[in-house]
Design a protein around this nucleic acid. Sequence first.
DNA 1: GCGACAG
DNA 2: ATCTTGTCGC
Length: 219
Amino acid sequence: MSNSTVSGNTTSHYLAATINVQSEIAKKVISENIPNKEIIYICGVDVAYRNNIAYCSAVLMNKNSMEVKESVNITLSVKHPYVPSFFMLRESEAIINILKPLKNRFDLLLIDGHGVLHPRRCGLASYIGVIIDSPTIGVAKSILCGSVNADHFIDVDGVISGFKMIKEKKKPIYISVGHKINLVNAIRIVKQLVKPEERIPEPLRLADIYSKALANSVP
DNA sequence: GCGACAG
DNA sequence: ATCTTGTCGC
């Protein structure tokens, strides 16, 4: 099997092919608010892992009332290992599939991972956004690449690609455009979804709790 | 070449 | 992410 080097990792050739896929998806990412209407229903998705099984939860909330409108779970087998900058291979299938059982529509999808704040501007959130043609925001708990400016914006290859959101006494979260939204709006929306004493925007925080509970409910 | 590296 | 004990701080 032929190999190549990707960011220091020796990879199988399909990962090298994935670089091309990511580059093509990146060209399709739109960093503008589309559609230009009020975003009310927001869906957050997270995945927990246990014994090579992925336990996925989606939580759909009303941004204004902060009430949960709907919540669904699915379980599926994991097909790819985790490789930095190729997280989409591991987690995208679960996310694509958990949107199917949702009965209610959403205006925006919140993803646990980066959007364009990625070496090839195609993190999980951007990949999902382009694939399902829906607005998405990437929210990650640690940074993958880029340099943080004095104003907390993050530069990747000379382009402002993300924002380091800091709440006193808490670890930061990193926000970036997934698809069909601009960075300033993404920051505003995420801020609005983080409860006073919390760190993670509510739809993602709940999805994290629910997916872990689902994973632990299986003997 | 070395180190860093979403979940 | 997950595994996993005690320990430090408020």
